[in-house]
């Protein structure tokens, strides 16, 4: 066994200090060590996008990132979205627009879209497609997910106009 390393990282605003083997992937740390099983593991080689999380605000694959690479970083997972039982506007839009069926891929989609709409609150169709193209969904069909993104953009704009925090 290789020399374990102690790392410190913030996950959804909570600071964790954990000792891990260098080969531990970030997704295994999140799910196994921290019990945050909202992030799903799919292909484990960076293609399907189910494990997408935000790393210092940027959407990345947590299955092809080592936990040690996240030392000193801020990680955000799908568990950060709903607050006090209230769905996040992006989640609400997914529900209303049928952006999911089985839901396995959904956490990854939500995190990728969350990055997109933070960086670019009024994205072009091309920007949305470029983002969704990095996530694989095998049951819904992408059109309803695209519709959910457009609905989420509207919800977030309405919340901003109303002076909300979302």
């Amino acid at each position: 066994m290789a020399t374990p390393r102690t790392i410190t990282l913030s996950v959804n605003g909570t600071t964790h200090q954990v000792t891990v083997e260098p080969r531990t992937t970030l997704v295994d740390l999140l799910r196994g060590d921290l019990g945050l099983t909202g992030t799903h593991v799919g292909c484990e080689h960076g293609v399907c996008g189910a494990c997408t999380i935000l790393w210092n605000g940027k959407a990345v694959r947590s299955c092809i990132m080592l936990a040690v690479q996240a030392d000193g970083s801020e990680v955000t997972t799908v568990e950060s979205m709903a607050q006090d039982g209230e769905l996040h506007p992006i989640q609400q839009a997914f529900m209303e627009a049928h952006g999911l069926q089985c839901g396995f891929c959904t956490p990854g989609f939500l995190m990728s879209i969350s990055e997109l709409l933070t960086r670019s609150p009024d994205p072009t169709d091309e920007e949305i497609k470029d983002t969704l193209g990095g996530q694989i969904c095998r049951c819904t069909g992408y059109q309803s997910i695209f519709t959910a993104v457009r609905l989420a953009i509207k919800k977030l704009a309405d919340a901003r106009a109303a002076g909300g925090s979302a």
């Binding site: 960076g46 996008g49 997408t52 790393w55 940027k58 959407a59 990345v60 694959r61 092809i64 990132m65 990728s112 990055e115 997109l116 470029d130 983002t131 193209g133 990095g134 996530q135």
Partner: peptide
């Protein structure tokens, strides 16, 4: 650059 994988990969 835009031909390389996806934004989620290009971020890393």
């Amino acid at each position: 650059t835009m031909h390389i994988a996806h934004p989620q990969n290009r971020n890393q």
